[in-house]
Structures are given as structure tokens and as C-alpha cells.
């Protein structure tokens, strides 16, 4: 059976590193893995999505409405935007950060109130974490992505050391400790 994870956020938040670490970890566990990314600076500041699918034999690299087992959202509004992609009984892991999109900044729209409460009210399991706080505690606001990956890791049956090994072999040497710390904070959240 193929499982699907959606990683969503705002361009520039580091969603790509999270999906790559996730993909490499799954490959290390001998899954067939496909990841579909959105590239280019042109996406910066916009709503971005990465699809991760794994199983015995994966055909399509993309995830569509009603198909995701987990949605990892780097931002609250994005969790609501991508909610239709969640499977019935799926789970949302979300960073409690709010970033105003341009229509809100220019006063053409409002950032909806209590977004996460509304998602929960729709009967969806939500795990909300303050990943920015974890990242700052680990030493850099940039580590939000790896802290969130730690939270996702909690929700899988893949051993902690397999994740840590991927981090060690993927991120530049001088950032390994920082990222392992951020991952650990997410993993224990």
C-alpha cells in the first residue's frame, strides 16, 4: 500500500530540505519512494507544496484531494488551504506560525481567525507545535523545518537513529549539531 505525505508552507521556509530528509530516510528503510517538488525562486513567498509517497511500488509522484495520510504544514493558513488533500482519518501536523499573505498585507483580505480550531472542528486530528521556538532553542530560526520533521518522525514507526543518520549525511557538517538538536526537540514534542 502506498502512503502519502504532503509538506506545505510558504516558499522560503525550507520545505524542500524536510522532504529530502524524509525521502532519504524512507529509502534507507527500503521503501519505493517518489517525491514531487516545486522549484525556483519564482515560488518564494507563495504557497508551496511537496508530495512524498512511499510503499512497495509507487506510480504517481503526486498527491491529490482526499489522498494524504499526513499533512505537515509550516504555517497555519496553509494547513487550512491544503486540508482537502487529507484522507478521511488522516492527521495534520502544524507549526503555529502565522505569515500574512500579500492580499492580507495590502488589506484586500483578512487572515481567518482561529484557523486551527476550525480544522479540528471539521473532525480532523491536529498536532500543533511551536517549531519556531524549538528552532530558536536549537540555535537558528532556519531549523524550523528539521524540528517539524522530528514531529512527523514521531508519527512513523521508523527508528530515531535512522532519521538522525540521514540528517548527519545530508546537512553540511557545521549545521549537523544544530539540526540534530532541532530534530530531537520536535521528536519529543
Amino acid at each position: 500500500m502506498t502512503r502519502s505525505i504532503l509538506i506545505v508552507g510558504v516558499g522560503g521556509q525550507g520545505t524542500l530540505l524536510a522532504s529530502r530528509l524524509l525521502g532519504r530516510t524512507l529509502l534507507a528503510k527500503d521503501y519505493d519512494v517518489k517525491i514531487s517538488e516545486v522549484h525556483g525562486m519564482s515560488q518564494r513567498g507563495g504557497s508551496v507544496v511537496t508530495y512524498v509517497r512511499y510503499g512497495d511500488n509507487v506510480a504517481s509522484p503526486i498527491v491529490e484531494k482526499g489522498e494524504a495520510d499526513i499533512i505537515l504544514s509550516f504555517e497555519e493558513l496553509e494547513a487550512a488551504r491544503w486540508l482537502p488533500y487529507l484522507k478521511k482519518g488522516g492527521k495534520i501536523v502544524v507549526n503555529t506560525q502565522k505569515m500574512d499573505p500579500m492580499p492580507v498585507i495590502i488589506g484586500a483580505a483578512e487572515y481567518p481567525k482561529d484557523v486551527l480550531k476550525q480544522v479540528e472542528a471539521a473532525g480532523v486530528e491536529v498536532q500543533a507545535v511551536d517549531a519556531l521556538r524549538m528552532a530558536l532553542e536549537a540555535g537558528s530560526p532556519k531549523a524550523v523545518n528539521v524540528a517539524l520533521l522530528g514531529v512527523v518522525a514521531q508519527n512513523t514507526d521508523i527508528e530515531k537513529d535512522v532519521w538522525e543518520e540521514t540528517i548527519r549525511t545530508t546537512v553540511p557538517e557545521k549545521f549537523i549539531d544544530l539540526n540534530l538538536k532541532a530534530f530531537g526537540l520536535g521528536y519529543n514534542a
Binding site: R44, L77, R81, P84, P101, A109
Partner: peptide, 19 residues
């Protein structure tokens, strides 16, 4: 067709923007 959930609220768009 697959079933999906959606919220009954207006979700403002997030087009890309100059950094």
C-alpha cells in the same frame, strides 16, 4: 471520486511575492 474535507471559510490566496 475520492471524498475530501473543506472548511467553509474564505482562505486568502498566497501568490508568490518579491522577497
Amino acid at each position: 471520486e475520492k471524498e475530501s474535507i473543506a472548511l467553509d471559510i474564505d482562505i486568502p490566496g498566497r501568490p508568490p511575492a518579491l522577497c
